[in-house]
Design a protein around this nucleic acid. Structure first.
Lengths: 342, 342
DNA sequence: AGGCGTTTTGCAAGCGCTTGCAAAATGTGC
DNA sequence: GCACATTTTGCAAGCGCTTGCAAAACGCCT
């Protein structure tokens, strides 16, 4: 559909559009930015010209000049992680709908340079979504200092200064544990996330609360600290299996750990769920393709991403307003990896 | 003149550095860009000042002024796809090492606006990596017109005008088919990718060649077109299972399709590999966690990402030179999903 | 028709950086 | 010590856009 006019090489600028529409460049800018005091007839003229010339805004220039670059940044720790991918999907989708672009930053390889990295990010984006459990404090300092719009995903923010989205960690873990208890399990091993993370602590508390409510004594040797990654889940499960009094069920506090645990259990000659029940957390896509399919606590990951975007855009649109916080309900998804103990 | 305008945001500019180092701003710019004709002593002075003030380049400004923005774009079709994630990992890693940032663009939701989308991308990045099998022709037109540096991943470029990385599709498919034949299979069903994609056609040709080499007649009803996605893999497998003369093995031309096929096979009451052998392509991480583990053709996805970056940077550094093309060896990984037919 | 309050519009001044060009500094040969 | 070739450096002019300010148009009143 691109028409007959022009220089395929040199991009069309607002000056070109202005000339074509017979108005000044600032008027074009105003039309393009939806400024209110523009006569309808000139608005139409400008839009037509822009359309006709195939004008596309140069976001770098826009950003430099102090307007919005319409780019938001996403800081993630790793990429080969379904949890991350799912949240990213939601973010991307919501961003696309709002007309924003996405710039992706990974934390690794920037150790010791977080401040500068944060500055770079801030110089290029209108806001930032942090999906970075561990390093987040360092980045947060740099970012809060500048009063830069941002949202935390899956992290509780003690100070309340940052907007955030997360799941009902405590409740999800409570339900998962309760599920195993109701099935008849009494020795329930647990593989946590890094306990520096609020989500990991909350889930662990949920686990403890459930045991207490059902008057099951808590055996600290059944609690093994993991890191939400598969290899550590594998090791942690091995530790649990080595206990003199082996657990009849394991609650891995995220699915990736559960995947690792699954390997370890199978490798030790035991079978799931006959010998050991296994429950995860997150409900990443893989949870449904393992054999047996994994019972888990679903977090609405995609939606978390969408909401993160909403919270961020709210900050951009209303600079003064207090940062929003959303907590989304988790849901126990019972599949084949859990059943009553023998 | 520059001293007093302070916004809390990013006070340090090259002007500040210049003042602190007692040189002109253009000298600072030259030092920062590694320009050769700068006296060593001033270079040191400037670097010191920059370091001391915590200077961080504003990439938007740099980009606008015609320099490199040090941002490269990555265009992907979807995010919740291990294939994509793996390649992205390699890209991110190589980019980080080279000091580049990554801007992520997704194709969906931009139907009909590809030209403009391409312009936007071009206005913000130094180069583009396309991981977009289907829509790629549309984008390619827009991009080649501007003679914009870019690389195709996993697509053969007929015209040779675009740099590209891909795996040995033909050979990988040949080996996979040969593997099944050697096991004794004669009726080997196949689930292809969309045949508009060069990779899908090449793989199919490899399959055909293997059958021919072993003098096995080709039964077109055993060839079902898929789309490289899981749901379609599921359906395609169902079709194959419904044939009067059921295949004893299925070669899904990517792992995602194989995952779908696995579901379909299991659902129909048959078991893998006893009743039906299954082979995939790609070796995404999931292939190793299914039960049984999937025999597949490994593509060095992460490395493909790294090489894509290398090819792109070569173009940036040597604007004149012809686009590079790399083909990486695939490797048959035999796991548990394939065995001799009953 | 003249006056006044409101819209609309245009101009100029940057945002932080790169770069061509010319001036300044340095070095060389005699 | 001088003329000239060679580094180094600084200045100015943008890159494409936003925005404060003031001028121009317009509307409506008397």
């Amino acid at each position: 559909m691109s028409a007959d006019n022009l220089r395929p090489n040199q991009p069309v600028t607002i000056y070109d559009v202005a000339a074509a529409a017979g108005v000044s460049y600032s008027t074009v800018s105003r039309v393009l930015n939806g400024f209110e005091f523009v006569k309808e007839s000139t608005r139409v003229k400008v839009m037509d010209a822009a359309e006709r010339l195939g004008y596309v805004a140069n976001l770098q220039a826009r950003g430099l000049a102090g307007g919005r670059s319409n780019i938001i940044g996403l800081l993630v720790p790793v990429l080969d992680n379904s949890y991350v991918s799912e949240v990213m999907m939601g973010i991307d989708e919501a961003l696309a709908r709002a007309g924003f672009n996405l710039m992706l930053f990974t934390t690794h390889r920037h150790a010791g340079k977080e401040q500068q990295y944060a500055s770079t990010i801030a110089s290029m984006t209108d806001g930032l979504i942090l999906l970075v459990p561990l390093e987040s404090p360092i980045y947060l300092n740099a970012i809060r200092e500048r009063n830069y719009p941002h949202v935390l995903v899956d992290q509780t923010d003690e100070s309340g200064a940052s907007a955030s989205v997360s799941g009902t960690n405590w409740h999800g873990a409570y339900e998962a544990t309760q599920h195993l208890i109701m099935l008849g399990h009494r020795r329930i091993g647990v593989i946590t996330g890094l306990l520096e993370l609020s989500s990991a602590r909350e889930r662990l508390n949920g686990y403890r609360a459930a045991l207490q409510d059902y008057a099951i004594p808590i055996d600290e040797s059944l609690i093994v600290e993991g890191d939400y990654l598969q290899p550590r889940g594998y090791e942690a499960a091995q530790e649990l299996l080595k206990l003199r009094e082996r657990p009849s069920a394991i609650f891995a506090m995220n699915d990736l750990s559960a995947l690792g645990a699954m390997d370890a259990i199978r490798e030790s000659g035991l079978s799931i769920p006959e010998d050991i029940s296994l429950v995860g957390f997150d409900d990443i896509p893989q949870a449904a393709i393992t054999h047996p399919k994994l019972t888990t606590v679903r977090q609405p990951l995609v939606q978390m991403g969408r909401i993160a975007v909403r919270l961020l855009l709210e900050q951009l649109d209303h600079p003064g307003s207090p940062p929003g916080h959303e907590t989304l309900a988790t849901q126990l998804v019972i599949r084949a990896s859990s059943q009553p103990p023998r």
